[in-house]
Design a protein around this nucleic acid. Structure first.
Lengths: 345, 345
DNA sequence: TTGTAGGCGTTATCAC
DNA sequence: GTGATAACGCCTACAA
């Protein structure tokens, strides 16, 4: 028979264990476990004694141990975004968090800096915590990343673009269609020399899709694209001003510009204000996302409405559903988008 | 003697275990463990055999089991912010992440919705994962929250205000001094009827401190504060416009307004533009934080420069130092602030 | 209603 | 250089 050494005599440790609670309450660890997970199985008298002991020692269950037992997953959902410092992603994170927190799931967060190599390392690192699921903004992954995600047999939701063949599930909108729709809107307003500014498209599927949507719209309308009106700029407000400048000093000037990256449109609109240009009139502007600040600017940018918060919510819902059902199939949720005509085109 | 059932025959599971790797390589789990943690202890020949097996089965260590063994902490740092959807906090998160990722630590993120009750639940939930440390933006906590954090004996860094007596460590700036400095700047420019707009101060220590700094500056300059020029508004751009409107339609109009909350200042400046008011001239404006968008606006708002990214970096540094040293004392890092005179006052 | 035994996947320790 | 054993803290299964 094994002698039970009172745990309370151990060297001072950070957290108390279930055994310490059990000793204090004069019961076995199983009874403590029951009080915490299934109180109805324990007599009222014992239960209150245990609860008192839990309070007194400030006991907090060790999820690592519990998770181990089931060789299952932790209560963490791994989220990987291109950057943590971007208000678009912030809205998605908030949507995820709001939807998951009620289910006892917490967020584990990282950024891949727009690199699939970094993403691979991050997935591996996160995987060691045995997360309950993954939410990835990127839709292009290294072979090893894909392999790890498949092997884990855990729900994976991609959210950056409505890809045809997701690793597992996808909750997003079509960057291409959205871009197409906004370009068509510009064409419908009578513009024919429509400039296009995006972030560098090399290795960026979303930017590629957006440019394709733009080109497709021109083609459908029998408008010949003008190479010199298609630019790539680094992210940031300043690029909006710069893109505007470049496209307005060409021999063939643009009559409208579609800014398909981050805050370009805002930067361009503000630059127009500085130059005293009328928008529209001297130039028409359209922007991809509708930033909160946009609504404060006069005029309000013509843009797309992408439901960033809802993408987070829906991704959470899909994760929860798939976790419960354990089925591994493909689910595609199209959250869609809409064109906000507004005032700058 | 216990018969060893080949693990590879178990029902299909998500992740492979160290035992599976060991069997494949024809060694014991200890050897696998050594190859992963301390390769130099294993012969080159065995090592490469094990590494091959690891590759083949796509083995990823189970941090839950490893952490259990040491009854130690996970490689997660718990971060609790008032809201996830705020670009100020985003910068801090980015700073944290950038500084922690190289040390193998990942972020666990949650928002307390500006409530210490929510914070308490979140701390408890996070604590079950046995995080390596906590970063809290809030500086006011429930008694239970404090107790849990003390018991855990884990580094805790508060970042929302440079409190005198942090739970453990604090990395921040003084909201009161910053507010005082900017108010003094306005006074130095000759303004005497300085309005003050903040978020509701009830239960918000940071907002309280900011108001105190403002009042102190007035007092030091022998200016009698005018109650009607002190407002509280809900967060958001619109409140900037609203605050401006309220303070300019009083009997005693403000000649300058200090917006001490989030994006108020930007909202007010844009409202001035809509109204065709000169800034300064018709009204002087000052704002707390220097948002990225501010630099794009003309004129650029007179404001404070709070090093949000650096707060994240430094908080990470303090966490890492304290984790290593295991000392529990109090560390206070003042990242400071500076007044950016700019153009609106 | 409560307790005992055993094992989850990993690693510290000690033996070979 | 390598392996056997015994925990780590909790919970399932079974016994009392």
């Amino acid at each position: 028979m094994k002698e039970i050494r009172p745990e309370s005599l151990r060297t001072q440790v950070a957290h108390s264990t279930m055994l310490q609670v059990a000793e204090r309450a004069g019961v076995s660890t199983m009874t403590v476990s029951r009080v915490l997970r299934n109180p109805s199985l324990v007599s009222a008298e014992t239960r209150s004694r245990v609860q008192k002991a839990v309070e007194e020692v400030g006991y907090i269950p060790n999820a690592l141990a519990g998770g181990l037992r089931l060789s299952s997953t932790s209560n963490l959902v791994a989220v990987i975004l291109p950057s943590l410092d971007n208000s678009l992603y912030s809205r998605t994170i908030q949507g995820l968090s709001d939807a998951l927190v009620g289910h006892g799931l917490n967020l584990m967060l990282g950024d891949n800096r727009y690199s699939s190599i970094v993403e691979e390392r991050l997935v591996e690192s996160f995987m060691e915590q045995r997360p309950a699921g993954f939410v990835l903004h990127e839709t292009v992954h290294s072979a090893k990343t894909k392999r790890m995600l498949m092997l884990a047999r855990v729900p994976v939701v991609e959210i950056g673009d409505l890809v045809a063949r997701p690793i597992d599930a996808v909750v997003s909108y079509s960057n291409k269609l959205a871009s197409h729709a906004l370009t068509m809107h510009l064409i419908g307003r009578g513009y024919r020399r429509i400039g296009f500014v995006s972030v560098p498209i090399a290795g960026n599927r979303r930017a590629q899709q957006r440019r394709e949507g733009y080109l497709q719209a021109l083609k459908n309308s029998r408008i010949t694209p003008i190479d010199k009106l298609i630019l790539e700029c680094e992210p940031g407000f300043a690029s909006g001003a710069r893109g505007l400048d470049l496209l307005m000093s060409k021999q063939v000037k643009a009559d409208a510009i579609f800014f398909a990256g981050d805050v370009f449109g805002i930067g361009a609109l503000l630059e127009c204000q500085r130059r005293g240009w009328r928008v529209p009139g001297d130039i028409a502007l359209a922007s991809f996302d509708d930033y909160e600040i946009s609504a404060q600017l006069t005029p309000h940018l013509t843009c797309l409405d992408i439901p960033r918060y809802r993408i987070g919510q829906e991704a959470a819902r899909v994760l929860l559903t798939r976790s419960a059902a354990k089925d591994i199939g493909r689910e595609r949720v199209n959250v869609g988008f809409s064109v906000l005509p507004n005032q700058t085109a």
